[in-house]
Simulated assay, not measured.
Amino acid sequence: MNDAVNERVREVIADIPRASHRNDGRQAIWRVEGHSIRVVALRSAFDTSATAPFRSAHPPDLADMRQRFPELSLLWDAIRHEYRRRFLPS
């Protein structure tokens, strides 16, 4: 990516440190690290006490989550779409 795109990504990340998506009865809390989407928690959209946080310094990226939970493909697609909409120029 060029420097202008990298700068824009850094500006947007500073404004929006985390985002959340709900789909298929699940909610994923995610953030951007560099050029990677990291999922920091996955929980039921109906029962917020049922949360699976990823406590490591480097939570799993979106590709890892697609492999672990392929049945949530609509959720992962929504996150990828939002990432592209916010961080990549048209």
Rank of each mutant, 00 (worst) to 15 (best):
90 S>F: 14
14 A>P: 00
6 N>T: 07
45 A>R: 05
16 I>D: 07
31 R>S: 15
38 R>N: 11
71 E>W: 02
74 L>R: 15
13 I>W: 12
36 S>K: 07
78 A>D: 15
6 N>S: 08
27 Q>M: 14
43 R>W: 13
39 V>K: 07
2 N>I: 00
32 V>E: 11
37 I>F: 11
62 L>W: 10
13 I>T: 12
16 I>L: 09
79 I>W: 00
81 H>E: 15
15 D>Y: 07
74 L>G: 15
34 G>V: 03
86 R>I: 11
17 P>T: 02
19 A>V: 09
60 P>Y: 03
82 E>K: 06
62 L>Y: 09
60 P>G: 01
7 E>S: 04
31 R>Q: 07
57 A>N: 05
35 H>I: 06
70 P>K: 01
56 S>N: 12
31 R>T: 08
79 I>S: 00
75 L>Y: 01
51 T>Y: 03
16 I>K: 05
41 A>L: 08
49 S>E: 09
30 W>K: 01
26 R>Q: 14
18 R>F: 14
40 V>A: 08
21 H>G: 04
62 L>P: 09
24 D>A: 15
54 F>S: 02
79 I>P: 04
30 W>T: 05
49 S>C: 14
12 V>M: 09
79 I>Q: 03
69 F>R: 08
49 S>N: 14
39 V>G: 08
62 L>T: 06
56 S>V: 02
19 A>W: 10
86 R>S: 13
27 Q>F: 06
46 F>N: 10
88 L>D: 09
62 L>E: 12
55 R>K: 15
83 Y>V: 10
27 Q>H: 10
34 G>C: 05
75 L>C: 02
24 D>T: 11
59 P>E: 01
41 A>R: 07
55 R>V: 08
37 I>G: 04
49 S>P: 11
84 R>C: 09
65 M>Y: 13
72 L>G: 02
11 E>V: 15
17 P>S: 08
68 R>K: 05
3 D>K: 09
76 W>P: 04
30 W>I: 02
69 F>D: 04
83 Y>D: 10
9 V>L: 05
80 R>H: 09
25 G>S: 07
32 V>Q: 10
24 D>I: 04
73 S>M: 13
71 E>V: 04
52 A>P: 06
69 F>K: 03
33 E>I: 13
90 S>Y: 12
65 M>V: 04
67 Q>L: 03
2 N>D: 00
59 P>F: 03
79 I>D: 01
55 R>A: 15
